[in-house]
Design a binder for these strands. Structure first.
Length: 581
RNA sequence: GGUCUGGUAGUUCAGUUGGUUAGAAUAUCGCCCUGUCACGGCGAGGGUCGCGGGUUCGAGUCCCGUCCAGACCGCCA
């Protein structure tokens, strides 16, 4: 046995006993005749002290240590003369008796402390050292707990964990596939799954009416702070259910997770909002409803007064930033610059201050009388002291820009508290979206999503208006997950492929196995998948998922620690029958 | 594919209209210190200013190219 106790468990009750701990040297405070060494492991930090009553040998050994040495220390637990209330073991210390260096260490390239001096690049390169830091370990502990509680909940609801293959077949829909060459089938390739979508549907056909899996998915697309090329889904599917059954089941799961992991009681009933309403009120399919500042349609009161920018716009939208009338010209100019950045792309920003004396001051006073502006204020429900911000243009573009501005204002005004959690089901997504590039419709969710029966009659005349039995769970402006009721009818599925521009032959080649399965008694079914990384990051109050992944990739999709991806040897390429350009 | 920001000591950063020997903090090393816990004091070592080219009497600083990192747009059913 290397240790009798961990570095986190000794308390004043242990005073007098002789113990052995093992861990890493955190800090050394050498005062000459008195030396303290903090020893760290996963469980905490214990202070070891050497003094005049210690043996010369052990004192010498303590003085020879360096940061991050791995040591085994035996000593007597004693009370500190000056307790440290900031750490759990702060009432005791270990009077050193024996020091064994289990392994020396180079000086680490950055400090292994809660507030490290290391930059992101360096910490990524030495991720195994970064993972020694408390805050990083806490994040992985949080992930572990979410994972465990997910299994507990789904098990309690009779879900069955079934593994699905990772080497599957490439399909044209959706994201780019990661591809794996097959040596035994030269010239052919597997694809890594973007999700286990078709397999979980086949499991429904097989009769496993409640399936789940916490599973890696792979998408070869450009990355963001909240997107990794490999990420983890809580993937679920149920048979003999309607949309409500699914929403209720997983509302329960999210409530369970927040209760057990964070001690947070979420809304008893998550609000639901149609996609079209979310777009109108927030310009987003994943609105952050922790704060108001909802969109106001200014078309009726802003148009027709001779201001050509608004007159020519399809849509004029305002938001009311309450109590912001005191914004200075400089602040407003800064906001204007912000919305005009290429990433936002607004042409300009119109503002109107609602002065305390009941008058109005806008950047377009030339075109609008006080009465006109009073109508704006009334429409936006603005009170004296409020600030109205207005954007205009095409409906789609203006909504998108205003969504960004609203979130930006929410950040600036501190309205997006990471310890407040506001879930929202967004339902009735469109079935299809128009793709300019290919000049045809794409499935908005995926090609197995069922249209709403009442919209089926539009499918040939106005396919863009057909709504789907599809839903997302949004929380705090993040899409945590989504799903749909699936098509379980061969004819309808075949029609969908038709609509998506697949020929009969292509559909047969790509998804023949699924359509065949549907001919052998496929039950009505549906499901959803949560992004575990995003869920955990949201629960931890972060926007970046990288800290919640033990070994993440950087924004070029590289693992800078192991230096992947990397070239293959020509022997390997030959064996695979691959010639590089 | 694009936009923006950054790259200077082991690390995090500062570095003036282009001008003497490129600084600070921290880390490291040495000496001193009996109650520290961000220990303290004194001292020392430590630089391919990302890389390549150009302008100039002179470039960390200006210009061009390039590489790397981060955020974002496109993309991500």
């Amino acid at each position: 046995m290397y240790r009798s106790h961990t570095c986190g468990e000794l308390r004043s009750e242990n005073i007098g006993s002789t113990v052995t701990i093992a861990g890493w040297v955190q800090t050394i405070r050498d005062k000459g005749n008195l030396i303290w060494v903090d020893i760290r492991d996963r469980y905490g930090i214990t202070q070891v002290v050497g003094q005049d009553t210690s043996s010369e040998e052990s004192l010498k050994a303590l003085k020879s240590l360096g940061r991050e040495f791995v040591v085994q220390i035996t000593g007597t637990v004693s009370a500190r003369s000056a307790a440290n209330p900031n750490i759990e073991t702060g009432e005791i210390e270990l009077l050193v008796e024996k020091v064994v260096v289990l392994n020396a260490s180079l000086t680490p390239p950055f400090t292994i402390e809660d507030n490290t001096d290391g930059g992101e690049e360096l910490r990524a390169q030495y991720r195994y050292l970064d993972l020694r830091r408390g805050p990083v370990q806490d994040k992985l502990r949080l992930r572990n707990k979410v994972n465990l509680e997910t299994r507990k909940y789904l098990d309690s609801q009779d879900f069955l964990d079934v593994e699905t293959p990772v080497l599957i077949k490439s399909t044209p829909e959706g994201a780019r596939d990661f591809v794996v060459p097959s040596r035994m089938n030269e010239g052919q390739f597997y694809a890594l799954p973007q999700s286990p979508q078709t397999f979980k549907q086949l499991l429904m056909v097989s009769g496993f009416d409640k399936y789940f899996q916490i599973v890696k998915c792979f998408r070869d697309e450009d990355l963001r702070a909240d997107r990794q090329p490999e990420f983890t889904q809580i993937d679920c599917e149920m048979a003999f259910v309607e949309q409500d059954d699914i929403l209720n089941m997983f509302e329960g799961m999210i409530q369970h997770l927040f209760r057990e992991v964070r001690g947070v009681e979420l809304d008893a009933k998550f609000p639901r909002m149609e996609y079209s309403e979310a777009m109108e009120r927030y310009g987003s399919d994943k609105p952050d409803i922790r704060f108001g500042m909802e969109f106001v349609d200014l078309n009726p009161v802003a148009k027709g007064k001779g201001f050509s920018i608004f007159d020519d716009a399809e849509q004029v939208i305002a938001i009311n930033a309450e109590q912001c009338a005191a914004y200075t010209r400089k602040q407003l100019d800064k906001l204007t610059d912000w919305v005009r950045r290429p990433q936002i792309g607004a042409k300009g920003l119109v503002y109107m201050r609602c002065n305390e004396d009941g008058t109005f001051k806008s950047s377009v006073d030339k075109f609008y009388s006080q009465e006109d502006l009073a109508a704006w204020a009334k429409t936006a429900n603005a009170k004296p002291g409020d600030l109205i911000l207005v954007l205009s243009g095409t409906t789609e573009g203006t909504r998108k820009q205003m969504n960004e501005l609203r979130l930006h204002m929410g950040d600036e005004l501190g309205l997006r508290n990471p310890n407040v959690f506001k879930p929202l089901w967004v339902v009735d997504f469109p079935l299809l979206e128009w793709d300019e590039e290919s000049g045809r419709y794409n499935a908005m969710h995926h090609p197995f999503t069922s249209p709403k029966p009442e919209d089926l009659h539009l499918i040939d005349t106005e396919p863009g208006k057909v709504r789907a039995n599809a839903y997302d769970l949004a929380m705090n402006g993040v899409e945590l997950g989504g799903g749909s009721i699936r098509i379980h009818d061969r004819d309808l599925q075949s029609r969908m492929f038709d609509l998506l521009g697949f020929t009969k032959e292509e559909a047969e080649a790509q998804f023949g196995f699924l359509m065949s399965a549907f001919e052998y008694g496929a039950p009505p079914h549906g499901g959803l998948a949560f992004g575990l990384d995003r869920l955990v990051a949201t629960m931890g109050g972060s926007e970046s998922i990288r800290d919640y992944i033990a070994f993440p990739k950087n924004n070029s999709g590289r693992d800078v620690m192991i230096d992947a991806p990397s070239p293959l040897s020509s022997d390997q390429l030959t064996e695979l029958g691959i010639a590089l350009k």
